[in-house]
Simulated scan of single mutants.
Amino acid sequence: MKFNDTFVNTDKRFTLGIEAASGKYYVSIPVSNRLVDYDEYYEISREPYELFLRDPSAALIFVERCKARQEDESLMVKPGADRGVAT
């Protein structure tokens, strides 16, 4: 998978983008485990993607749900046994 970020919010620590091969839209958040820092990618549809681009503050509820692991069914890559914690 090749994730292409289209928007980065450094203050609230999330990105929006489009995965190159599938054309799927996503929100990503940084996470860390005891060995590595990485990003988790959550698939969203086109409508919220466009809304979040126009109004990044509209993404914050979804981002917080991702950080609380309440959107795990939307994960584009399932985490391993040593899943990180949102940073």
Results as ranks from 00 to 15, higher is better:
S45H: 07
D55F: 09
G17N: 08
F3H: 04
V8F: 03
R65S: 14
T10I: 04
V31W: 03
R34M: 11
F7D: 08
F14V: 05
L60Y: 11
R46K: 15
D5C: 00
Y49C: 01
K24G: 09
V8M: 03
I61N: 13
P56W: 00
L60K: 00
L60D: 09
T87N: 14
I29T: 03
K78E: 13
L60P: 02
E19D: 06
T87Y: 12
A58W: 00
A86D: 09
F14W: 08
V36K: 12
G23Y: 06
E50Y: 03
E50F: 03
Y26K: 10
D37F: 05
G84A: 05
F52A: 00
Y42S: 00
I18H: 00
F62S: 07
I61A: 15
E19P: 04
G84H: 06
S28D: 10
K78V: 11
L53V: 08
F3M: 09
Y25R: 14
S32A: 14
F14E: 04
R13P: 01
L75S: 07
C66M: 12
I18Q: 04
G17R: 10
P79Y: 01
L53M: 11
L16W: 11
F7S: 04
I61T: 14
L53T: 05
S57N: 13
G23C: 07
G17D: 09
A21C: 01
F3E: 00
T15K: 14
D37W: 02
N33G: 05
L53N: 03
I29R: 03
V85W: 03
L53I: 06
A20Q: 13
L51P: 00
L51T: 11
G84I: 07
L60A: 02
Y26N: 04
Y41I: 00
A20I: 02
C66V: 12
M1S: 13
S28W: 05
N33Y: 03
L16K: 08
E43G: 09
A86M: 08
L75F: 07
P56S: 10
A58S: 12
S28N: 11
A20H: 08
M76R: 06
